[in-house]
């Protein structure tokens, strides 16, 4: 240890003492109880900025577009919301988005659960590594790139159709329709769902499953009565993430839907940038935010507050 003459303390100790004194002067001991909150500040700031943006959107949505000047009128009105409810196309787009969100959530969870389960339970290190790499690889490829990838495979002159026409059949219409959008979204959401389900499955000890088996349950019974209920927090969490991401998705319906299967995000984009109606675009955004929030709140209410891991812990 590096001993120095002054006081016999190592230099590094004295340096740290100095830093401690400076910190004590700037942030008195009495405030240490608030240390935890200090770390919350960036997150709070971020949310606050979002709320400001949302406030502006509410304001925009309450003004009708003046077609003479292409500016929003000064007067407050509910015209934009009226437009949303009166034009069947918007209701249809919202319904289509909601239906897609529900379907994608269901399919994704059904596919992701066995994946997560196998990844946790496999005794082979090689299998686990393969599954992990396969899980993370898609994250390196953006959503737009992946959508174009599907175009290359499923397009009119894509890989699949070249095989179909090669054996003398007429080409199939595999893209620019609703199922193609669903397919693209499921593929996009799968890694998120697996990632959220894995800790939930890992938390179920293998002994619990063996216990269930020794108590008389077949593997189906064990799955139904033990594994699924115990993984519920993860399932709800994954479901909410997939549902909201799908509901608000833009790229997949844009690229794989080709205008036939617009989601509400596409309608918002069109309002802002195609018909330059900031008021209507804002109104659609507010509707989407409200519907999405309401559904998430409903899901949490049905599933119970304990599901996200806030379970009451008594010792």
């Amino acid at each position: 240890m590096a001993e120095t003459a002054a006081g016999g303390k190592p230099l590094s100790w004295r340096l740290i003492d100095g830093v401690d004194r400076l910190v004590a002067a700037a942030w008195p001991r009495g405030l240490h109880g608030m240390n935890g909150y200090l770390f919350l500040l960036p997150a709070v700031a971020l949310v606050f900025i979002l709320v400001i943006g949302l406030g502006y959107m509410v304001e925009f949505s309450l003004h009708e577009l003046d077609l003479a000047t292409y500016r929003l009128k000064e007067a407050y009105s509910l015209t934009n919301y009226q437009t949303f409810f009166e034009r069947p196309v918007y209701i249809r787009v919202l319904w289509r988005s909601l239906l897609a969100a529900a379907i994608v959530t269901l399919i994704t969870l059904v596919l992701a659960f066995p994946y997560a389960y196998l990844m946790v339970r496999t005794t082979s290190a090689a299998t686990r590594k393969f599954l992990l790499v396969a899980l993370f690889l898609p994250f390196f490829i953006g959503q737009v790139v992946r959508a174009y990838g599907w175009l290359i495979i499923l397009g009119k002159e894509g890989l699949l159709n070249s095989i179909v026409t090669g054996i003398g059949l007429p080409p199939l219409d595999l893209i620019y329709n609703y199922p193609a959008v669903i397919l693209g979204l499921v593929q996009y959401m799968l890694p998120f769902a697996v990632l959220l389900l894995t800790p939930a499955v890992a938390a179920i000890g293998e002994d619990i499953e063996l216990a269930s088996e020794s108590l008389g349950a077949t593997w189906i019974g064990t799955f139904r009565h033990v594994v699924i209920p115990m993984a519920k927090p993860g399932i709800i969490g994954a479901g909410i993430v997939v549902f909201t991401l799908t509901l608000t998705d833009f790229a997949m319906p844009e690229i794989l839907g080709g205008g036939t299967s617009d989601f509400i995000a596409n309608a918002i984009y069109d309002s802002y940038f195609q018909i330059s109606n900031i008021g209507l675009g804002s109104a659609l955004s507010i509707v989407l935010t409200l519907v999405g929030s309401a559904l998430v709140a409903l899901m949490l209410m049905i599933a119970g507050t304990g599901t996200l891991g806030f379970a009451e812990r008594k010792s």
Binding site: G205, D207, I208, L210, A211, S212, E213, S214, L215, G216, A217, T218, G221, V226, P229, M230, K232
Partner: peptide
């Protein structure tokens, strides 16, 4: 195991927490 008439108490008990 589920057809054997055996009750087992596990090291970590393996009670069903839910």
């Amino acid at each position: 195991p589920y057809r054997r008439s055996i009750g087992m108490v596990f090291q970590r008990l393996a009670l069903f927490p839910h």
